[in-house]
Design a protein around this nucleic acid. Structure first.
Lengths: 338, 338
DNA sequence: ACTGGCACTCGGCGGGACGGAGTGCCAACC
DNA sequence: GGTTGGCACTCCGTCCCGCCGAGTGCCAGT
C-alpha cells in the first residue's frame, strides 16, 4: 500500500497537473506544497507511485502525469466534493425557477451546468417509463384521422397521429376518451397494457377496430419512447483545454452526436450515488482521454433521469462533482414543485 | 468587367481549391482544365482577378485562393445547383417517411442533411406564428392548477401549467374549452388576441378572473414561442477540413450554442429562394471563414420555417445547395401529408 | 494578344546546436 | 532506515540555417 506521504504526493500531483496542464516535477511540488521534505525524497516517492501505476512520464526526464488509475484513487480517497458557495446556489435556484415548462427546465439546466463547470453538459429528459399518466386526449383531425396526446406526471407531452379504419364520430371519441382516462389516469406506464386490454369489448362490431387501433397506437407510444431523449450544451468548451486537436476532439464530437452513446455514458448513476467514470473506464475508444461525472435526479425519492458533464480526464473533479450534485438537487426540487 | 476567360479561370480556381484545399497556381490550372492557353496567360488573368479582389495570395509567390467576393461571383454566376441523383432522392424520401411525429421528422431531417453535405446542419421547427390552431385542451392537475395544451396545424404541441386564483370546476373548464375551441380552432395565431378578447364576459363574477387567467396564459404561450426552436447535427464535421483548429473551430462552436445566432443565420431564406451567405456576409466575427446555405420549407405555398447547413467558405457550393434544396422539398412534402 | 524564358521571392522542411527541466543514483547524514 | 544534497545523464522544445520547390512578375519575342 501507499503510505500517507505518497498519497499526499499523488494528491499534489493531480492538483498541480489539473491547474497547469503540464507535467509536474519534484522541485515544483516541493515548492508549491509544503510537504516538509526535499525534492529528492519526493523523487523516491514518485518512482514508487510510477511503479504502482498511479503516474507516468510522457517521456524520460519529463515531469509526471497522473494515469487513469491515479485519478481514480484521487477521486475515491484523496479528495472530497467541493460544495458550491451560497451565492452560486442562490444563482442556480433563481435561474432554474424562471422556467416555464419542461423543455425550458431541461434547456436551462443543461446550459447552466455547462457554464458552471466549463465543460460539456448532458441532461436526460425525465423518464417516461417510471412516470405515471396524467391525461390522455383524443381529437379528430379529419374523418379518418385521429391525434392522440399523452401527458405524463413529469410534464412531458407525447403526440401521435394515426389513421383509422373507418370514420370516427365525436361521440365515439368522447366515449373512448372518457373510458381511457378513467382507467389509466394516475397509473404507471408499465401497468397500462393490462389495464386496457379489454377496453374495446363493449363497443359494436364496426367501432371495435377503430378503438383497437387507438389502443394500439397508445401502447406503441408508451414503448417507443423508452429510448430517452438527451440534450447537450457547452461543446465549445472542448476547445478550452490544450487538447491536441484533430485527434482528441473529433471522436468526442462524434460520440456526442450519438444519443445512444450519451445515454450509456450517463450509465448507472442513481440519485444519491454520483458516478465518475475516468478515461478508459468509459469503454469507448474515442473517449479514452475524457471523464464523465454523472448523477441521477428526481422529484422525491425516485430517480427520474440522469445528468452529468463530460470533460478531459485532467479536470477539477471536486469542483465538477460539486456543481453536478448541486444542479441535480435543484432540478429535482423544481420538478417536484411543478 | 471580367471577360469570359477570366470567369473561366475564376471558376477553375474555386473548383480546384475546394477539391484540394490548397492554393492553386497557374501551371496546375493549365494542366487540369483545358483552357486552351498557357500558364503565362493565366497568370495575367490571375493578376487581373486579384486586382479586382476576387482572389488573393496567402503570401507572395504562393498560389491563389478565392476571396469571399470570388465565391460570391462563383455562386451567383459561374455555377448552378447540382441536382441529386435519383438514388439519393429515393433514399431521402424513404428515410424521412419513416418518421412518427414532428420531433422525429425534424430530428431525421437534420441528421440526414448533415450526412449528405458532410457539414453542420441546422433545422428550425415549423413556425408557430404562421400556423393555425388545431385544438386547445384544458385539464385540471389540482383544484387550483390547470394545464393548457395547444396543438397547431404543423403538429407542434405547446404546454403550459398555471395556477388559478380559485378552484376550477370541471364544468367551468369544459365550458371554457368548448367556447375557446369554437372561437379559435382553425384560426391563425395572429388573429387569436382579437377573437378571444371578450370571451370572459359571459361568466359570473367569481369565474371571470379564472377565465381571464387562462386566456392570459394562452396569449402568453402564443407570444413566448415566437422565438423559434432549432436543432443541430454534424458538429463533428467541423473537424473534417484543414481548419487551423483552435482559432477557427472555437468561435463556430460558440456561435452554434446561441440559438439566437443560429436563427439569424438562417435569416431571410424563403421557400423558393435559397440564400447563400459567404464569410463576412454573415456579419458575425467568429464566422468569417464559414458560409451558410439556407432555404425555407413548408407544406404547400407557405414558408413554415428554414433549414440549412454551415461549413467552411471553401465548400462545394453546387453540391451543398442541391442537397439543401432537395431535403427542404421532401420535408415540405412529409409535413403536408401529416 | 499570347507565349516562353528567366530572375526573384518566400514558405516548408530537415539537420544540427543549445539550453533547461527533470530524472536516477549514490554517498553522506541524522 | 529514511532523508538529503550532489551530480551526471537524458531528452524535449526551440532556434537557426540552408536548401529546395512552387509560384510569381516581367519582358522580349512571336
Amino acid at each position: 500500500m501507499l503510505d500517507d506521504r505518497k498519497q499526499d504526493v499523488l494528491r499534489a500531483i493531480v492538483q498541480d497537473y489539473v491547474a497547469t496542464q503540464e507535467p509536474v516535477g519534484s522541485k515544483a511540488l516541493a515548492d508549491r506544497h509544503n510537504l516538509g521534505v526535499s525534492p529528492a525524497t519526493i523523487r523516491n516517492d514518485m518512482a514508487a507511485l510510477e511503479e504502482e501505476g498511479y503516474i507516468t512520464q510522457p517521456h524520460t526526464s519529463a515531469g509526471r502525469v497522473p494515469t487513469d488509475k491515479g485519478y481514480r484513487l484521487f477521486v475515491d480517497r484523496l479528495a472530497g466534493v467541493k460544495p458550491l458557495s451560497g451565492a452560486e446556489r442562490r444563482a442556480i435556484q433563481t435561474f432554474l425557477a424562471g422556467a416555464v415548462d419542461l423543455d425550458d427546465v431541461v434547456g436551462r439546466t443543461v446550459r447552466l451546468l455547462a457554464q458552471l463547470t466549463h465543460q460539456v453538459a448532458v441532461v436526460q429528459y425525465p423518464s417516461l417509463t417510471r412516470s405515471t399518466i396524467r391525461h390522455v386526449e383524443l381529437l379528430t383531425l379529419a374523418p379518418t384521422r385521429v391525434m392522440l396526446v399523452l401527458i405524463t406526471s413529469t410534464g412531458r407531452v407525447e403526440q401521435r397521429v394515426m389513421d383509422t379504419p373507418g370514420p370516427v364520430g365525436e361521440n365515439l371519441l368522447a366515449d373512448v376518451r372518457a373510458r381511457l382516462n378513467s382507467r389509466i389516469t394516475g397509473k404507471r406506464f408499465a401497468d397500462v397494457p393490462l389495464l386496457i386490454q379489454d377496453l374495446a369489448e363493449p363497443f359494436t362490431a364496426e367501432e371495435r377496430p377503430i378503438v383497437a387501433g387507438i389502443l394500439a397506437t397508445l401502447l406503441d407510444t408508451l414503448v417507443e419512447h423508452k429510448e430517452e431523449k438527451v440534450v447537450l450544451a457547452g461543446t465549445a468548451n472542448l476547445t478550452r483545454f490544450g487538447m491536441d486537436f484533430p485527434n482528441t476532439i473529433r471522436p468526442v464530437l462524434e460520440a456526442l452526436e450519438e444519443h445512444v452513446v450519451l445515454l450509456r455514458l450517463l450509465g448507472e448513476a442513481t440519485d444519491p450515488g454520483m458516478v465518475v467514470r475516468i478515461g478508459h473506464e468509459n469503454m469507448h475508444e474515442g473517449l479514452a482521454a475524457t471523464s464523465v461525472v454523472a448523477v441521477g435526479y428526481g422529484s422525491g425519492q425516485e430517480t427520474l433521469a440522469k445528468l452529468g458533464v463530460l470533460g478531459p480526464t485532467r479536470m477539477d473533479y471536486p469542483g465538477t462533482m460539486g456543481a453536478v450534485r448541486a444542479v441535480a438537487r435543484y432540478v429535482g426540487q423544481i420538478l417536484a414543485e411543478s
